[in-house]
């Protein structure tokens, strides 16, 4: 864990190819994420946004290309070192992916139990703080995932992702399925966490409001690679038909008007 500077590359993807059988998802995809930024990944359905996320996390093997996170190529790291470095990121899956046999508090304590030697008292305190940070009521601690609403499951998933104070937070459609108030609160939460914890956030989303509210840069996935990376203004100026449609459509105008 070297001392790190804001703005240095933290995720580097070079020449990535992924395919499922004959179905090519990514071809020669390049993307660099810098430390401390919130990057939004957008693209039509089926353009492989979630696949890109899973490939960076090492859950799917790339068919070609190189992926470096924290400057390390995880596929060539020895097992022990890989595990150690995997603790440096937190992931929120689409539906929270909480362990259904454990309560919310126990879910958050899983990484503490597995990786660290902490007293039960301290673990309980930490879990309660993370739960409050993620915007859940304290009474949610002792509930099982099946007793939570979709929005609460997301927040609990976020609390677990934040358990070890990660450097990078991966979010897969965090606001999908939330009501507008909940989604806005989530955006605010994300900005706050970025401020206080100095997080880098890799955000896969369809939510234009979230893009406007939180992202420093946006990467557009289309035609099997990243066609444009830039700020919201760059997106608005782009003449690419899909990007134009996406950021100038009726919903985009409404989202912009709200700012």
């Amino acid at each position: 864990m070297s001392t790190s500077r804001k703005g240095e590359p933290i995720i580097e993807v070079e020449g990535l190819d992924t395919r499922f059988g004959d179905n090519v998802i990514h071809e020669n995809l390049d993307l660099t994420v810098r430390r401390g930024e919130v990057i939004g990944i957008v693209g039509g359905s089926g353009t492989g946004k979630s696949v890109l996320l899973r490939t960076i996390l090492g859950l799917k093997q790339p068919d070609a290309g190189r992926i470096r996170v924290f400057g390390l190529d995880f596929s060539t790291l020895p097992e022990a070192e890989r595990r150690l470095n995997e603790r440096r990121w937190g992931v929120l899956f689409q539906d929270g992916a909480l362990f259904s046999a454990l309560t919310v508090a126990e879910n958050i304590q899983v990484p503490y139990r597995e990786h660290l030697d902490l007293s039960q008292e301290l673990m309980d305190e930490l879990a309660a703080v993370k739960i409050a940070m993620a915007g859940l009521r304290p009474s949610a601690c002792s509930l099982y995932p099946s007793e939570l609403s979709g929005g609460m499951r997301k927040r609990a998933g976020l609390a677990r992702a934040l358990a070890l104070d990660p450097e990078i937070l991966f979010l897969d459609e965090p606001t999908a399925g939330l009501d507008p108030i909940g989604a806005a609160a989530f955006d605010e939460l994300l900005n706050e966490l970025k401020e206080t914890l100095g997080l880098t956030v890799f955000l896969v989303t369809h939510d234009l409001d979230t893009l406007h509210a939180t992202c420093d840069r946006i990467a557009v996935l289309a035609e099997k690679h990243v066609i444009l990376v830039g700020t919201i203004d760059d997106m608005l100026r782009s003449s690419h038909p899909w990007i134009h449609e996406y950021f100038h459509g009726p919903r985009a105008r409404a989202a912009l008007a709200g700012k």
């Binding site: 008292e121 309980d124 305190e125 309660a128 409050a132 304290p138 601690c141 002792s142 706050e192 206080t196």
Partner: peptide, 14 residues
């Protein structure tokens, strides 16, 4: 960070 944690309250034992 301290402010954020304070705002989250000192939790009751559960």
């Amino acid at each position: 960070l301290l402010g954020k944690v304070d705002a989250c309250g000192n939790p009751e034992p559960m």
